[in-house]
Amino acid sequence: MAGRSLALAPLLAAVLATTVAVADTLEADRRSGYDLMSPELRAMQDDDLSNPGMFWVLDGERLWQEPAGAAGIACAGCHGDAQESMRGVAARYPAFDPALGRPQDLAGRISQCRTERQEAEPLARESDALLALSAFVAHQSRGLPIDPPGDPRLQPFRAKGAALYQTPIGQLDLACASCHDRNWGRRLGGSTIPQAHPTGYPLYRLEWQALGSLQRRLRNCMIGVRATPFDFGAPELIELELYLMSRAAGMAVETPAIRP
């Protein structure tokens, strides 16, 4: 028995060392998916007149001014000029919502504001209107560093997200970390595996031919490993986002980003 645990000790040490090494490499060598794209795609993202994500941003700008719901007020009615009031907001989401008792993401917050304050019909997840408003709000943080809130109430949820990130799921039995920590920069089929930093959401993905949310992307990956994806708006997806945002702390917001 003693011999067995002695034999295991170096193995365990080696595993721990690898995990630490992976975390260190990531910390020192963090890269946005932007850096792994072709120069053509980077040019497409950088030029607002060739970035199709700007269509949603412009739609969002219009919706921001449009009164909605029984209350008949627009987002701008309370929040005023988004350039000032929404600057840096997306970089701090998901945030703790005391009423819900759990974290809320930006799209969820917008939807909540719409039903509670504007007294309007809720916007469905992944609807063009909600994507447009989210993209418009997140766009006001473009270039600012991701700045996850230090709220201690978020900590247990962030830990859950971190655990989920490391948990193998699906028939392929892969964790997020299997690809995005240990094999980033290598190829999966024709695509380069990025480090999974959610810097540019909602983003325009060429594969989608449209703008999509981080939750859509996470669900894509889950379907890819043949797991049952969490539903849109599920607490697990928000916990995962919370962890990913803290992992990407300090990286610049790119919304609306382009990704292949």
């Binding site: 030029d47 607002d48 007149l49 060739s50 700007m54 269509f55 412009l58 739609d59």
Partner: peptide
């Protein structure tokens, strides 16, 4: 209308 035009 949703168009983005770039003309110098």
């Amino acid at each position: 209308m949703r168009t983005l035009i770039n003309v110098p």
